Amino acid sequence: MKFSAITTKLVMTTILCASFLGNAHAADALKMELTANQVIKNADGKTVYSPVRTAPVGTVIQYKATYTNTINKDINDLMVTLPIPINMTFTGEAQPTSAQASTDGKNYADMPLMKKVDGKMVKVPYSEYRTLRWNIKLLPAKKTAVVAINTTVDR
């Protein structure tokens, strides 16, 4: 099965947590643009990104969210979250690397996530990761911040 970036985009743009001081509302203060790009290694071994709407199984897709502070006031402690679509698996690559991950969308921890199996602590497989979040400590007035995750099309 192929993924649909349009469907994924609608789901992903609805998930945004913003908390900051002041009486500006997130809708007035923050603009988010989401892109989906296929991650391709060219002949020189360099990574290039190509816009994509559909892709076959095994394709690596990068979701990049650009957050723009549209007001003349800094935004502090901005929490942004990107879900990993059902038909995708997180590759382990996130930018910035300070992202925290969750298997349930509620409880977050630094990566790699760990769990106890047969009395031993083991890494949680990336296929179980469902969301990533970042705490952008400061987004200055009229500036942008970018977060990104790489995923692979599963089905």
Rank of each mutant, 00 (worst) to 15 (best):
S4Q: 10
K115H: 13
N107C: 04
V80P: 00
G58T: 04
C17N: 13
D28I: 03
L138M: 15
L10C: 01
I149A: 01
L30Y: 01
T81F: 08
T35F: 05
K2I: 11
K115R: 15
A43Q: 14
I86F: 11
R53N: 15
V147K: 06
P56W: 02
K123E: 14
L21F: 06
R133M: 12
T131H: 10
I136V: 14
D118M: 12
V52Y: 04
T7N: 09
V57K: 15
A36P: 04
V124L: 05
K9E: 10
I136C: 09
W134Q: 03
A141T: 08
V117L: 11
V122E: 10
K41Y: 06
T13E: 15
T54R: 10
N69M: 10
K31R: 07
T68A: 12
S19G: 12
V153T: 11
L34R: 08
T131R: 02
K31M: 03
P51D: 04
N69Q: 15
V11P: 02
C17F: 15
T70G: 02
A43K: 12
A18L: 11
I6Q: 07
A65R: 07
Q95C: 00
T59I: 06
M79I: 12
S4L: 15
A43V: 14
N72R: 13
T81E: 14
K115G: 09
N23Q: 06
T8S: 05
L34F: 08
V146E: 13
K73V: 11
I61G: 07
L132F: 13
T151Y: 08
L138I: 13
I136Q: 07
N23S: 10
T8A: 13
T66A: 13
K106W: 13
S127G: 09
M1V: 09
S19R: 13
L113K: 09
V39T: 02
K106D: 08
T97N: 03
M79L: 10
A43L: 13
L10N: 11
V147C: 08
N42H: 07
D104A: 08
S102F: 15
N69D: 09
T14F: 07
K9G: 11
D44N: 15
V124W: 00
T81K: 13
I61E: 03
L139N: 07
V80S: 09
I149K: 00
A148I: 01
I75C: 03
D44S: 14
